[in-house]
Design a protein around this nucleic acid. Structure first.
Length: 477
RNA sequence: GGCCCCUUCGUCUAGCGGUCCAGGACGUCGGCCUCUCACGCCGAAAACACGGGUUCGAGUCCCGUAGGGGUCACCA
C-alpha cells in the first residue's frame, strides 16, 4: 500500500476560520496517524480575490496551531505550465472542448431555465461543435462530462455515494483569460503531488464526482475521499460572522491556547469513546476516520471554554506565564518581573478559563500600584477593619518563615484574640492587598506577595483609607 | 425547485440487534467544602424526529414521511 499523503488546500480569500482549521487538523492527524505526510497547498487561482495578507494569516494560523506541513506551501499561481499541458491532453483526447458561449448568453439561459423549472446546468451548446478558436476569439475550455451512467465512490466517512452523470455539468476548466479554474488545478495538483487521501468539508461532496471524471479522463487513479460534516452555529446554520468570532486568530486573542483549540476542533465531529481531553500525541495516536461523525456539529463556546480551562491547568507554570504575557496592558508589560508572575501561576491556574483571565487575575501579583474598588473599600476598609488590619500587620511582623504554614496560624490566632470569625479578618485583608474582594486564598496570596509587600500594602491601605485618599480603580465602562 | 447528505439529552457525543426503563462531557439546577472567588466532590432534571416494515427481539437493519443542511458560477 502506498504511503498516505494528505493535503490541506485553502484559498487565500479570507482568514483561517474554524472549519478550515479543522479540515487541516483532520488531514494532519490522518497523515500522522498513518505515518504519512501532510502537504500544504495554497489555491490562489482566483487572482482577484486572493491576497498576500490572507496567505500570511493562514500560514500564521496553522503555525500557531502547530499543524506543520511536511511539504509546502505550494502555490498554484506558479504552476500554469503544468495545468496547460494537462488541458491540452484533454482537448486532444476529446475530453475537453472549446465553448464560445458568452457569460451573458449563459446567464440568460440559466434564468430562463430556472423560470421554466428546468435544470440550470449548461445546455452543452458547444459540446459537439468540434471547433477550435480563431485567433483572438474569446472562449473557455469545458470538460466533457459523461452524459449518461453514474459516478459513485466510497466515501471514507459516508460510505457509498452515487450521482447520476446527467446531473453533472460540463464545467469550465480554463477561463476566457486563459487561467485555470479550481476543478482543473485541484485534480492536476492532487495527481502531481501524489495525494492519496482527501478529507474536506461536506460542501465539496457534489464536486467529487466531477473531479473523479477529470481523474478518469486524465488516466490517473483518484485519491480516497472523506467528507467532513460542517461546523454550524448555535442556530444550526453555517458558521458565519454573525455567530461571533469565526477566525482562529480571534480565539487566539481571546486567550485560548493552541492545544485547546486543536482538542475542541477534533472533538467537534469526531470522538473516541468517552474521552474529552486529548493531548496532541493522543490525538495522533487515537485519530481514526471510523470515529468521525456524519452530521453537522454546532460550535459551543461554553464547552470550548471548558476545554481551554482543562488544557491550561495541564500546562507548566513557565508556559502559562509566558502565554499570558501578551495579555497584560502594554504599559505594564515591560515592568513585569517574570519570577513574580511565575510564582503566582499555581494560585491562579484553577481559576482562569483563558489567558486573558489569567493575565487579569495575575495583575495584582506583578503590579504594586493597587487600585481599589470603591464598593469593596467602603464595605471592608472602615475604621473597625482598619484597626484589625493594624493588629494584623503587627502580628505578621514576627511570622517566620514566611510561608502559609506559619501565616495561617498567625491569622487564626489573631482572629481568636479579636473574637471575630476568620472572614472578618481575611476579607478586609484581601481588599487591602488586592483592592478587590476576589482573589486566591488569603494565606497563599500573602506568601506569594512576600512579607515586605504584604506589610507595605496592608499599612498603605490603612493609612490611605483613614485619610480618605485610596486610589480608586476606574469603574468598568 | 433538481440532486446529494444528515437526524440519540439545550450542545458535543457513546451506542456498531439482546448487557439501554440509553452511558459520558459541557451547560443548567440543588447540596457539600469554604477566608472571597474559583477548583473539587455529591446529586438532579434532560434525548433515541415520526410512521411502517424485517426480527423471538430495533436507538442499532430496510422503506417512507417530516425536519435540517449542502450544492447547482468563467468562486474555491
Amino acid at each position: 500500500m502506498k504511503s498516505v499523503r494528505t493535503r490541506f488546500a485553502p484559498s487565500p480569500t479570507g482568514y483561517l476560520h474554524l472549519g478550515g482549521a479543522r479540515t487541516a487538523l483532520f488531514n494532519y492527524l490522518f497523515a500522522r496517524h498513518h505515518g504519512g505526510s501532510f502537504v500544504l497547498r495554497i489555491e490562489d487561482t482566483d487572482k482577484a480575490r486572493s491576497s498576500q495578507e490572507y496567505v500570511e494569516a493562514i500560514l500564521d494560523g496553522l503555525e500557531w496551531l502547530g499543524l506543520e506541513a511536511d511539504e509546502g506551501p505550494i502555490f498554484q499561481s506558479g504552476r500554469d505550465e503544468l495545468y496547460r499541458a494537462r488541458v491540452e491532453s484533454l482537448i486532444e483526447s476529446g475530453d475537453a472542448y472549446y465553448c464560445f458561449c458568452t457569460p451573458e448568453e449563459l446567464d440568460a439561459k440559466r434564468k430562463a431555465a430556472q423560470a421554466a423549472g428546468r435544470s440550470s446546468a449548461y445546455d452543452r451548446t458547444c459540446r459537439d461543435l468540434g471547433r477550435t478558436p480563431r485567433s483572438g476569439e474569446a472562449c473557455v475550455i469545458r470538460f466533457r462530462c459523461p452524459a449518461e451512467g453514474q459516478t459513485g465512490f466510497r466515501d471514507l466517512i459516508r460510505g457509498p455515494v452515487v450521482f447520476d452523470n446527467a446531473e453533472l455539468d460540463d464545467l469550465v476548466l480554463v477561463r476566457t483569460d486563459g487561467s485555470p479554474t479550481f476543478h482543473l488545478v485541484v485534480v492536476v495538483d492532487d495527481i502531481e503531488l501524489g495525494i492519496t487521501h482527501i478529507l474536506r468539508g461536506e460542501d465539496h461532496l457534489s464536486n467529487t464526482p466531477r473531479q473523479l471524471g477529470i481523474f478518469k479522463a486524465l488516466g490517473a487513479e483518484p485519491p480516497v475521499y472523506g467528507h467532513l460534516p460542517l461546523i454550524v452555529g448555535a442556530d444550526r446554520s453555517r458558521l458565519s460572522k454573525r455567530h461571533g468570532a469565526t477566525s482562529v486568530g480571534a480565539y487566539r486573542e481571546l486567550g485560548f491556547v493552541p492545544d485547546a483549540v486543536v482538542n475542541y476542533l477534533a472533538r467537534l465531529g469526531w470522538s473516541h469513546g468517552d474521552q474529552e481531553i486529548f493531548s496532541r500525541d493522543e490525538l495522533v495516536e487515537c485519530f481514526d476516520v471510523e470515529g468521525v461523525n456524519k452530521s453537522a456539529s454546532a460550535f459551543d463556546m461554553e464547552k470550548f471554554t471548558w476545554v481551554n480551562f482543562e488544557h491550561m491547568r495541564r500546562m507548566g507554570d513557565r508556559e502559562l506565564a509566558d502565554g499570558s504575557l501578551p495579555f497584560f496592558p502594554d504599559d505594564l508589560r515591560p515592568a513585569i518581573d517574570p519570577t513574580r508572575l511565575q510564582a503566582a501561576i499555581p494560585l491562579l491556574r484553577d481559576r482562569a478559563h483563558s489567558l486573558v483571565e489569567l493575565a487579569d487575575q495575575a495583575r495584582t501579583f506583578v503590579d504594586d500600584d493597587v487600585r481599589f474598588d470603591a464598593k469593596a473599600a467602603a464595605r471592608f476598609l472602615g475604621e473597625e477593619e482598619q484597626g484589625r488590619l493594624r493588629a494584623l500587620s503587627d502580628a505578621l511582623e514576627s511570622v517566620d518563615p514566611w510561608e502559609t504554614t506559619a501565616i495561617e496560624p498567625a491569622f487564626r490566632a489573631l482572629a481568636d484574640t479579636l473574637e471575630v470569625k476568620l472572614g472578618k479578618l481575611a476579607q478586609p485583608t484581601r481588599v487591602a492587598l488586592t483592592g478587590g474582594t476576589v482573589s486566591p486564598g488569603i494565606f497563599e496570596l500573602c506568601e506569594a506577595l512576600g512579607k515586605q509587600r504584604t506589610l507595605d500594602r496592608l499599612r498603605n491601605a490603612c493609612e490611605q483609607a483613614a485619610a480618605g485618599t485610596l486610589p480608586l480603580a476606574e469603574s468598568e465602562a
